[in-house]
Structures are given as C-alpha cells and as structure tokens.
Amino acid sequence: MKTVGIVVEYNPFHNGHLYHAQKARETAKADVVIAVMSGHFLQRGEPAIIHKWARTRMALQNGVDLVVELPYAFSTQKAEIFSYGAISILKELACTSFCFGSENGQTKPFLDALATIQTAAEPLNRLIQFYMKEGNSFPKAQTLAREQLFKEDLSLDLSLPNNILGYHYVQANEQLGEPMQPLTIKRQQAGYHDESLAFDSIASATGIRKEIEASKHLSAIEKFVPESTLIELNEYYNTHQTFHSWNQYWPLLRYRLLSASITELQSIYDITEGIEFRFKETARHAETFSDFMEKVKTKRYTWTRIQRMLVHILTNTTKVEMKQAMSSVRYIRLLGMNEHGREYMNKMKKEISLPLITRAASHKELLALDIKASDVFMQGVQTPELLNIEFTHPPVLLL
C-alpha cells in the first residue's frame, strides 16, 4: 500500500487542513494518509484547544486514515527538533512520501536551499552567533545571516513559517537517509499566523481560535470548518464548559514561577541566560497571562520561544528529562484509525521496530513525559473523568 505522511496539530481541524489531507493523497497517489499529530501542548508553546482524541476524531472524519502522536519531547520544540521527531516517526511507519503545506508550493526550491545552506554551514553559524550577540532572536539572526551570506542565491523565502517547517522536514528526511519522497502543496489563502477571518472558507487555526474566544459562539466559524469539527467542538464545550487556552493555566503557572527557587527554574529545559529572574519578578506584577507576556517580552526572545519555556515550567520538565526523551524517537503512540488505517497497521505492525503503544498503562516509563503533560493539560477543565483519560481512553476507531 502506498502511504503519505503529514505533520499536523489540528488546533482545531479546519477547511485548510481538509484541503491539505485531500491534496496529499492526490499528489502522492496514496492509499493511506498517516498524520503525526502533536499531543496536548503544541509547537508554538500553547495548550491545544481540545484534547488529542477529539482532534483525532476530527482528522479521521476528514480524509486521514491513521493518527499517531508526536511526543511532548518533540511537539514543544523549535522547528529543527519538531521536524526531526515527526519525520522519524513517518519513516518508522514506512511512509512512501510526506507532504507539507508551504507558501512556496514547489519541492525543488527546498532541496536547492538545503544543498546551498549545507555547503556554507560554518560561515552561516558564525554569522548567526554574531547577530545573536547583537541582541537578535535566533530566527531573526538566521534571517540576517542568510541574507548576508547568500543574498539572491536562495530561491526559497525562509522567513515564512510554513517554508521554515518545510525546509526542516526536508532536512530531517535527508539526515535520515532520504527514506521518503518530499512533496509540498501551496498553502491556500490565509497565512499561518493570520488572526482575521477575511476569506470565504479558509482561515488559519489562529484566526479561528481568536474568533471563538472573541465571539463566545461557534456559529462564527462554521463556514471555515467541516461540520464534524463543529460537532466535536460543541460536544467538548457542552461537556467541559470551556476550551483550553493559556488563560486557564495562568494561576498554575504563576504559582510555579513564584514558588520555585531560581535554582529550580534554572533546571527547567530551555531556560537560559538568566531569563528565570525576569520571569519570577514579572510574575509578581502581572495580572493575566497576556499581561505577563507583554511585560516579559524582549527583542532577544520570540513570543513563541517564551511560551515554550513557560510550557516546560508549567509541566516541570527538566533539562535532564528532556535530554533523554529527545535523544531519539523511542515509541509509536497510536491515537486512532479508520478501516484503511487498521488494514495498513495489521500489515505493518510486525515490521515496526519501535514499541507500538495502544495502552498507556503498559508503558508508563516510556510515556512518562506525555503522561505528565496530559495530567497538567487536564487541569484546565473541571471534569473529574479527564484526570485519568491518558490511561482510560483507547485509540479512536472510525470503522
């Protein structure tokens, strides 16, 4: 069976995601579409709007055949590590190809950019360090260094978010021995960070979440999402009386910042250069999460980078824990499948070299970080049965 892999968050699943899944199958001429989906905390350093099994159901009802989890150790990382974890999982699942959305829409520029950048790795790194010492964030330093070193030699705009991720997917595939064919489709209409709902039927997940928060009513987004997404969101809200956002976790985060010692904060993954002092002091005066972020933001650190740090503080994830967990992909966590996905897994499960996990209770040590992250995520709702959902919820079957 021919398979195509996609890397997703579905926060929530919308019409642009539907287009991506359909075009990935069509472009790859694939029998099976496999999605590697982030769990409860996401790459931009924020909680998912609803839990991963509800997002899995959305995917399976809209063109995806199999959903596996991108572990916390990779899902809450910068683009390079995020991409390497996701592509490693797709390789392990023997995908023929992988397909990503991009602002560019053509595969060759990604391959050309990778080759060009690899030939100048050392001078590029020196320039990046130079620009970072001048106080720029890492992404800004990368952009400035590439502009100076390559000028017009790169035909790929690596300042655009989907192009950045696509570049790192292709890079990871190359590092893994090029087991899959990279494919890309042009992102339609709304940009990755677009906060407005300006188009007829396509909006970014960011824009959709903003609209839900502002309007407090799901009817405002109905033309931008499949009907199944509306049903899942309605059911989730009716059951739990809320969606997840940073606002709900602010009291927990502030408690962590104020009660932890400086030494404890320094042990948390990604905390560097004394920013823990700034976090701790700002937590004394900020009234809301947004207020905290506005006060703590600096030129040196992007909003996303700070949010990822705060996720690790919230989940108490240390440098030691993360170093071990992100050293390599160590398992495949199955979240859900339809009939095509089940048929594929039945054929492939003996070929997969890593543990294939369907029950968390049997692999508590391997899943330690994911279980902890899930426990923290569930503090955002006041529904008792969710506190043990990591152990009680089986993979979603849509047959």
Rank of each mutant, 00 (worst) to 15 (best):
D31G: 13
Y344W: 10
K186L: 06
L397M: 14
G63C: 08
L156P: 06
H193G: 13
T229G: 04
M322T: 10
L90H: 06
E122R: 15
E195D: 14
Y19N: 06
K347R: 15
L356V: 14
E339F: 03
R278Q: 14
K78C: 13
L399Q: 14
F224H: 05
R330S: 14
G135K: 06
N338F: 02
T76K: 02
Q189H: 14
A21M: 10
A286E: 11
H193L: 15
H340N: 14
T96H: 08
D270P: 06
L127G: 01
T392Y: 05
A361G: 12
I352L: 08
D200N: 14
R146N: 08
G166T: 01
V8S: 05
R300N: 03
I128S: 05
E92C: 11
A361K: 14
M348C: 12
V33Y: 10
N162K: 00
G177W: 07
G191M: 03
N136Q: 11
M326L: 11
Q106N: 12
L42M: 05
L90C: 03
A115F: 13
T27E: 12
G39R: 03
L158K: 11
H40V: 07
V8H: 07
E235Q: 13
P12Y: 04
R359S: 13
V4H: 07
A79M: 08
E122D: 15
R305C: 06
Q175C: 07
T143W: 11
G341Q: 10
G101Y: 00
F224M: 03
M293F: 01
H240C: 06
L367Q: 02
E103G: 01
V32C: 12
H244K: 07
A325K: 12
E26N: 10
E213N: 11
N173H: 09
G105Q: 00
F292C: 01
R333G: 12
F377C: 05
P71F: 05
A48W: 08
H51V: 00
L111C: 02
D375G: 08
E235K: 11
K78V: 13
Y84I: 06
N136S: 09
P251A: 02
P384S: 12
T383L: 09
V32N: 08
M337W: 10
A361P: 07
A79N: 08
Y344R: 09
M326P: 01
W250P: 00
D375S: 14
